[in-house]
Design a protein around this nucleic acid. Structure first.
Length: 598
RNA sequence: CGGGGUGUAGCUUAGCCUGGUAGAGCGCCUGGUUUGGGACCAGGAGGUCGUAGGUUCGAAUCCUAUCGCCCCGACCA
């Protein structure tokens, strides 16, 4: 039980000028956080309470056994935040991840200690847990294992945004599973997916699991947990059949499986297109070649070597999908890099056999499946100011490999059901990856099976952005007056609004009811400030306490107190004699709802 | 890193174009009247106008540089 007058909840009437979105404004107005600097926030007492509730529920759900997936609960440990840089240099993603890591210098190390190892602040912990497990586990008898922690992560985000949404320092639950084989890794993965679903249900958040790109993390498959919200950074592509994927990963059934390759429509023919360097210009008069009848040729550089990506003229590249090609690092090529290889400037590029100036320099020519819909089309001649027509996909293009590289569009058929694809914005609050043996191979995390054979452990890794989830809850659950906390994560479940804090019988009743509610399992805040009622009601709404008990001299004269739920307009007047029983019943009812959600 | 915006009291801000004593509301302190949805009256404290140069008799205001913050983009485990 806390008394407002002796606690610390600095609320603001006005929104801070640097907050744009509702949840960010409310975070600050309700006194949950204060900004230190861009992307760095102090959790104020009220905000910390929410974090602690989220963490506690997260722990419970992770540690729960998952009989359906034959997995025990995850095991909590605590790893250093400061990592020797050479650990990362040994790992598989140093090149890709170094940009986002804060690095320490030798400040304070003093003279003569220049050999002090260099450190990075941990953005995630694969590089720490894998060597640990290599050292500690060597028998199949000790597998599977799943370790987790709830701790601070550091990422040098290029652009921190929206308060806790994208911060430089944030609280994350990260877990790492180790299995003897792929089958087991999938069980661990599914067990974690189930735990995530239970966690989000229980904290009162609508979060949907969507198929996701594995990105720098690598691995074979992954799901993101998204909270639908306009302010989210990600696009979720879904259909009414239940299919859902991050746009970076989403596919469609645009290209029929049984599509026959188009027969050549005629001889290759070069024609002059002076000054035409865009799909749109070629689509316009006098050429009038529609975008769907053009091949678009993009040049990228993967691990230092250029490669080509061919798309339908009207399609856009989904850059994340290039990750499937296996390059550690890739980027768009510059005009200076392109000309010596292809023989022309961007705008006149193509992949027709024999037109590429230096084909040996290429790491490959990768084509999106959808170009087969073009069949015969127009593409650049690798000669400035010229294009080729009657280019036939199978006859004329030297394609190394077909793949899915285009960005899907809404309205295209769902790959599962054929229903039209739709899209909405989402906040990524959790991510699960089946990693495979990428890290185990690199760090030598192997175990011996019952046949005395050594094998790499098969890993999975899992994250929930606890502090981001906190803000996502607010984004999803607020109104004009403030936050509307779900019962399970509210900093206090009950606020006793004491309108006459100097009236002894009111104080006594408040304490009695607060004690009874606490005994029933609720956290109670008594607003005992000597403020006008309006201020107390406004503050109670702003900080979003789910259930308000109002005790005032006026009501007591009539022998009543009031109960009001934050998410309802109804005010229930309760005789003082029944107040305790009614309140306790409400607490039990809410607690039961929360538990049954689990 | 590119584009845009912004920096004045604890918070929200006016003043800047057109240079001439730095203003308001909220909050805070004192006293009084109030007291069921952010009260009212009276009095008070609080500002090197982000920082550093420059122009000028004189700079919050004009110029230059620099730093911070916010938004868009790029990027994002």
């Amino acid at each position: 039980m806390k008394r407002w007058s002796q606690f610390f909840i600095p609320t603001l009437k006005e929104s801070p000028s640097d907050a744009e979105i509702a949840s960010h404004k409310l975070l600050v107005r309700a006194g949950l956080v204060r900004k230190l600097s861009g992307g760095l926030y102090t959790f104020m007492p009220l905000g910390l309470r929410v974090m602690q509730k989220l963490s506690a529920i997260c722990r419970e759900e992770l540690e729960r056994t998952q009989p359906a997936h034959q997995r025990g609960g995850a095991i909590e440990l605590w790893m250093p935040h400061l990592h020797p840089a050479d650990l990362w240099e040994q790992g598989p993603r140093w090149a890709a991840a170094r940009e986002i890591m804060f690095r320490t210098d030798h400040a304070g190390a003093g003279k003569g200690r220049s050999r002090e190892p260099e450190f990075v602040l941990g953005p995630t912990h694969e590089e720490v847990i894998t060597p640990l497990v290599k050292q500690e586990i060597s028998s199949y008898r000790d597998l599977p294992k799943n370790f987790y922690q709830i701790a601070t992560k550091f990422r040098n985000e290029i652009r921190p945004r929206y308060g806790l949404m994208r911060a430089r320092e944030f609280v994350m639950m990260d877990a790492y599973s180790f299995d003897a084989n792929d089958d087991g890794a999938i069980k661990s993965y599914l067990a974690m997916k189930a735990a995530y679903e239970a966690f989000f249900r229980r904290i009162g958040v609508q979060a949907i699991a969507v198929e996701a790109d594995t990105g720098v993390m690598g691995g074979s498959f992954s799901h993101e947990f998204m909270v639908p919200a306009e302010v989210g950074d990600d696009d979720v592509i879904y259909s009414d059949s239940g299919y859902a994927a991050n746009r970076e990963k989403a596919t469609s059934a645009l290209v029929p499986k049984d599509l026959a390759d188009a027969a050549p429509a005629g001889e290759l023919e070069k024609f002059a297109t002076p000054g035409v360097v865009t799909i749109a210009a070629l689509a316009a008069a006098p050429y009038s070649v529609s975008g769907d009848a053009q091949f678009k040729t993009l040049v990228y550089v993967g691990d230092g070597k250029p490669f080509l990506v061919i798309l339908r003229g009207n399609d856009e590249l989904e850059e994340a999908k290039l990750g499937s090609l296996g390059f550690t690092l890739f980027r768009a090529a510059t005009a200076e890099e392109i000309e010596p290889v292809l023989g022309a400037k961007p705008g006149s590029l193509g992949a027709v056999k024999g037109t590429i100036k230096n084909p040996a320099a290429l790491a490959g020519i990768f084509a999106d499946h959808a170009i087969r819909l073009v069949g015969n089309g127009v593409t650049g001649a690798n000669e400035d100011g010229f294009h080729l027509r009657n280019v036939n996909v199978s006859r004329d293009l030297a394609i190394t490999k077909f793949g899915d590289f285009r960005r899907v569009r809404t309205g295209e058929p769902c790959p599962v059901s054929g229903l039209p694809l739709q899209s909405k914005r989402g906040i990524e609050v959790g991510h699960i990856f089946k990693l495979g043996t990428k890290y185990a191979d690199k760090f030598g995390a192997v175990y011996t099976d019952d046949q005395k054979q050594n094998h790499p452990m098969v890993m999975g890794c899992y994250g929930i952005g606890i502090s981001r989830t906190l803000q996502a809850i607010i984004e999803q659950s607020h109104d004009n007056d403030g936050i509307v906390w779900p019962w399970a994560v509210a900093p206090f479940q009950i606020i006793v609004t004491l309108l006459d804090p100097l009236l002894p019988e009111a104080v006594q009743l408040a304490e009695q009811l607060a004690a009874a509610a606490e005994a029933a399992g609720a956290d109670v805040l008594i607003d005992d400030r000597e403020e006008r009622p309006g201020i107390k009601f406004k503050d109670a709404d702003l900080i979003g306490i789910p259930l308000r008990v109002t005790i005032g001299g006026k009501g007591l004269k009539d022998g009543i107190i009031e109960l009001k739920a934050r998410n309802s307009k109804d005010v229930l007047k309760v005789p003082v004699a029944d107040a305790q029983a009614v309140l306790v019943a409400r607490v039990r009812e809410n607690a039961a709802k929360t538990l049954s959600a689990a």
